[in-house]
Design a protein around this nucleic acid. Structure first.
Length: 489
RNA sequence: GGCCCCGUCGUCUAGUGGCCUAGGACUCUGGCUUCUCAAGCCAGCUACGAGGGUUCGAAUCCCUUCGGGGCUACCA
């Protein structure tokens, strides 16, 4: 059989993670594409939690997933916290629905009880591997007699519910990969309900997509080969082929060097990126470029432009490697593009969390003046505290590695001269400071600017790397600046 | 092993038979600018996995091959 993906129904896309851990880069890329597609088509974005495996999914992870999506700006139209017509959106709250369908499949003989134990199943697989044949359920319990069933029940065995895969094959049109076909010889009868009565992903995902009227399933490539099973459930539910959702299997996002994305090569948890000072719009922009491209040699897109430009046709089929360097570059671009007010809003939490400032009015005012001179020099927000630290420290001290650089005779002379010429300055601002120092150190002493200003920089900011010197001194103020120069003599 | 998916610079990509002696971005290298660090500007390095076809013409179509990945659970 085959399905046709064309549909004129209003688009409904879902992002349905199974929160067995923090949402990671790959999950988010999928969420982003789901969201962008829904927004592009004017359809609904549905957020559903697949927590049928309560052994692995925790409430903390669910809460974290909700939080992460919100932080990224991927708002949903239906789902946790916002509700919706087709809720609940947590699968663990829909157990009765799955049980009803499973019973219906049983009644229709589309499914059957399987009494095989895990050990027996494993033994079968072992034998299949040894015989070099396709491993998979062998259909042992497909047509049990009532005597056999009675015997198993007498043994106290609890059966699982297994879906019967008919002879033939399943072909569906993947929006990204074209027609994909699976021979049922390689799609064994699969389990819908565990022995304890709880549903499996294979049941819940298909039932929910139908019940929630999902029209487009954009998900990871790893689910590609489970699609025939999902389609089998649609059929058992009595859904007409033209009402099946369209599928699009997104390519993987892989780690820096080899295969899987892991802690080693680039952090996987989005929470980590938030703490490291990455902007949500930068993460989304970068992730959008993994497996998709707006074309026309374009790289930079806003969230709004992404929704306007995004189409599944432009998603390609090969996996992409995650490159932290490029994310950083985009993050720097986005930071530079921020308005002064926005930049302040984003920067403030990093300064307070690093305990550089406590939040007094005077501190806030100084921060607002200082931010513009560092905005173009950082790639992540976490670079702000170390860069502005010199303006706020109570106990100032020159960095250990910079200290030797101002210990020589020439530096001491430079600092002494600077102190002497800066002390009488009555109008303390960056241009008057620059004028005074240039005439004293460059013109009169004949020094190279980098040598002369370098010494002053270290004495005043404590490091040989700092924001622009004269602006820094203006912000620090005359008395503090002079005190530091004097202290280093 | 079987089934399925994938294969353009180091990385992300543009490219849908001639506009490609393959373009952009990140990285890297060199230079300019410069009070440090950045930013900015300029230049450079490096790619169609391989082999066969089809065609006047192929990165683009077909076949084979090699390589990578996924699935093969009472995970999702």
């Amino acid at each position: 059989m085959s399905t046709n993906a064309t549909s004129s129904k209003p688009v409904r896309v879902r992002f349905a993670p199974s929160p067995t851990g923090d949402l990671h880069v790959g999950n988010i890329r999928t969420a982003l594409f789901d969201w962008a597609y829904a927004r592009h088509t004017g359809g609904a974005f549905i957020f559903r939690i697949e927590d049928t495996d309560r052994e692995r999914v925790t409430d903390e992870y669910i809460a974290a997933a909700i939080d992460t999506l919100r932080w990224l700006g991927l708002g949903w139209d239906e789902g946790p916290e916002v509700g919706g017509e087709f809720g609940p959106y947590l699968q663990s709250q829909r157990l009765d629905i799955y049980a009803e369908w499973a019973q219906k499949f049983l009644d229709q003989k589309d499914a059957y009880h399987c009494y095989c134990s895990s050990e027996e199943l494993e033994a079968v697989r072992e034998a299949q591997r040894a015989a070099n044949v396709a491993p998979g359920y062998n259909g042992h319990c497909r047509d049990l007699t009532s005597e056999q069933i009675a015997a198993y029940q007498a043994e106290g065995r609890k059966p699982v519910v297994r879906m019967r895969m008919p002879e033939g094959s399943t072909t569906f049109t993947d929006l990204i990969r074209g027609d994909v076909s699976f021979d049922h010889n390689f799609v064994p009868d699969f389990v819908l309900v565990r022995a304890d009565g709880s549903p499996l992903y294979t049941l819940a995902v298909a039932v929910d997509d139908v019940m929630m009227k999902v029209t487009h399933v954009l998900r990871g490539e790893d689910l590609l080969s489970s699609t025939p099973r999902q389609i089998r459930v649609y059929q058992a539910m009595g859904v007409a082929p033209e009402d099946f959702p369209a599928f699009a299997h997104l390519p993987f996002v892989m780690g820096q060097d080899n295969a899987k994305l892991s802690k080693r090569n680039g952090e996987v948890s989005i929470a980590w990126y938030r703490d490291a000072g990455y902007l949500p719009e930068a993460i989304c922009n970068y992730l959008a470029l993994l497996g998709w491209s707006p074309g026309e040699d374009r790289e930079e897109v806003t969230m709004k432009e992404l929704t306007e430009l995004f189409t599944v046709e432009r998603v390609h089929s090969s996996p992409a490697r995650f490159d932290m360097k490029k994310l950083e570059a985009i993050n720097g671009d986005k930071i530079r593009a921020l308005s002064a007010e926005e930049f302040f809003n984003r920067a403030l939490p990093f300064l307070t969390r690093a305990e550089i400032i406590s939040g007094t009015e005077a501190e806030i005012a100084l921060v607002k003046q200082a931010l513009p001179i560092i905005q173009e020099r950082i790639a992540t927000l976490s670079e702000i505290p170390p860069m502005l630290k010199f303006l706020f420290v109570k106990e100032f001290a020159v960095d250990a590695d910079s200290l030797p650089k101002i210990a020589d005779e020439q530096s001491r002379k430079v600092l002494a001269t600077a102190l002497e010429r800066l002390t009488p300055l009555t109008d303390w601002n960056h241009s008057s400071i620059e004028t005074a120092l240039r005439s004293a150190l460059i013109e009169e002493m004949g020094l190279k600017p980098r040598i002369a200003f370098g010494a002053v920089r270290i004495a005043v900011t404590g490091s040989h790397i700092s924001p622009p010197l004269f602006e820094s001194m203006e912000l620090l103020g005359q008395s503090a600046s002079l005190a530091r120069i004097s202290a280093s003599l």
